Simulated assay, not measured.
Amino acid sequence: MIEENSGVQEFISHLIELRTRLIRAVASVFVVFLCLLPVANRLYTWLALPLLKKMPAGGHMIATEVTTPFFVPMKVAGLVAFLIALPYVLSQIWGFIAPGLYSHEKKLALPLIFSSTLLFYCGMLFAYFGVFPFVFGFIANTAPQGVEIMTDIDKYLSFVINMFIAFGLAFETPVAVVLLVKFGVLSVTQLRGARRYVIVGAFIIGAVFTPPDAISQTLLALPLWLLYEVGIIAASRMTPLSKDHPVPLDS
């Protein structure tokens, strides 16, 4: 009975700690969001610059819903607030799960969390500065004669978020490769042998997530392939987890 009670108390204490850390994480995003509210419209203008610069003279963006001019900048401020607070949010997640990890798992998890976050940021920056100018230039140049480009601000935001997610996830390729090798799912030799299929798959992904022009497709496919090679290089310098830390037979 005593052991049962101690187990229940321990479970409740974990729930309380989880609630506390979730409140801290949400509060951090909310505080940053409040700080960004005065510049929400500027944030949207900055986000729309790649398209605005490619529009023909006199081109502009529109709002097709009554509340869109108010809510869309709020969404942008919320997105930026989450990205700014993300390191703190991840630190709260790490603080909750770290006590339950073994020492070798901590050594693996912390670098992976840091690198995956950094790579996702890099993917978003690459999309904004490297891809958007080509994509929107292609759209503006291929518009039929007599068609005036007037993109809805809400639909533009949805497009941008989808592109950010696509390129952010694409830049996670090295992390995925390292995990596959570390946990013994695939070997470095197998990954090298699958290179040709990865290249073809990268161009297929590029065709699906970007407008149908060769430049935009290549701008996603080429980094995806190069990051795959980076992952192979990083994975070749480590030993699979099963060899480093064999699981006991009685576990």
Rank of each mutant, 00 (worst) to 15 (best):
G95L: 11
I233R: 09
A40Q: 07
I153H: 07
K75C: 13
F71V: 13
A140T: 13
P50C: 07
D152I: 05
L226T: 07
A109M: 14
T20K: 09
G123Q: 13
K107W: 10
Y121V: 15
L179D: 03
L18Q: 11
I149K: 02
K182G: 02
L51R: 00
L224G: 11
L220A: 12
A27K: 00
I149W: 10
L110E: 01
A170D: 03
E3K: 14
V26N: 06
F209D: 05
K155Y: 04
I215Y: 05
I205D: 06
A40E: 00
T239K: 14
Y197V: 05
G137D: 03
F96R: 07
P38V: 04
F82W: 04
Q92E: 14
K54H: 11
L169Q: 00
L125N: 04
I199W: 00
V26G: 03
G137F: 01
W94N: 00
A176T: 12
S216Y: 11
T67K: 07
T64R: 13
F132L: 12
Q190K: 11
H245K: 04
V230Q: 03
F167A: 09
Y128S: 03
S6G: 08
L15H: 05
L36H: 04
P111F: 09
E65Y: 06
C122T: 10
T68F: 06
H14C: 03
A170L: 09
F159H: 02
I84F: 01
L49E: 15
V198D: 12
S158H: 01
G146K: 07
G193K: 15
E17T: 13
L43C: 00
P73Q: 08
I232Q: 06
L180P: 01
F33K: 03
A98V: 06
L118H: 08
G7M: 15
M55S: 10
F167S: 01
L125S: 11
S116G: 12
G137V: 03
A85G: 12
E3V: 11
E17V: 10
G7I: 10
L119Y: 07
R195S: 03
V131C: 01
E3S: 14
I23A: 15
I204P: 10
A194C: 05
A207S: 12
L112V: 13
H245D: 00
M55V: 12
A140S: 15
L43V: 02
M1C: 09
V200K: 06
T20E: 13
L226S: 08
S13K: 14
T173F: 11
I113R: 11
A235W: 01
V89L: 08
P246S: 06
L191E: 03
L241P: 02
Q92W: 08
G184E: 06
I84A: 08
T64C: 01
P211Q: 01
I97S: 05
E3R: 14
G193A: 12
